[in-house]
Amino acid sequence: MEEIKQQVISLPRLGEPAPPFEAVTTHGILKLEDFKGSWLILFSHPADFTPVCTTEFIGFAEIYTELQKRGVDLLALSVDSVSSHIAWVRNIEEKTGVKIPFPIIADLSKEVSFDYGMIHPEQSKTETVRCVFIIDPNQIIRTILYYPLTTGRNMQEILRIVDALQTTDENRVATPANWQPGDMVVVPPPNTQEMAEERLKQGYECVDWYLCKKKL
């Protein structure tokens, strides 16, 4: 009986270093380390010249300036060739007037796709699903989003996550559900009874000792 071997590839996890890569892109050969010191959003799309991906590329181009203001670089990926990527971004510009300012990895070997767990065989054996990896300036994975082939991503949510992560890093706080910049933030829960009692005297807006919010 023929033995079928299945390679099990561990997916990257939050808090782990992002898997290093050296990849051919529309902006030349880029390594992960080239982005060190900046935030990086690495995202995959299933294929060039497809409708949902085209709307997403336009969406990413539209938030590009906002991302730049936040010190975030964008890097796209699919398993298409550089020639295909170049033809597609030129077509997007020609048909919609939107210039795609960020590089796109041509992952023909699927090396980067496998390292980042971007291929989900039950969705497609040959294409990457819609992944988003938000990587911090120390090249640690801080957020992972996976969307199916049929669902385009929400750019405002991606911006919101970047704002939340940067707010957390700068202020040592957490952000509550549906938080938007300017809203109150959550004060980390106390670790001791003494800290819990002190918490209630500090002028925070508290539901109880474990849920306190403050203005920044």
Binding site: G28, L30, K31, G37, S38, D73
Partner: peptide, 12 residues
């Protein structure tokens, strides 16, 4: 130019 482009370009 973006810093990542310069790092890559300097290698080249």
């Amino acid at each position: 130019l973006p810093l990542f482009r310069v790092r890559s370009g300097l290698r080249e």
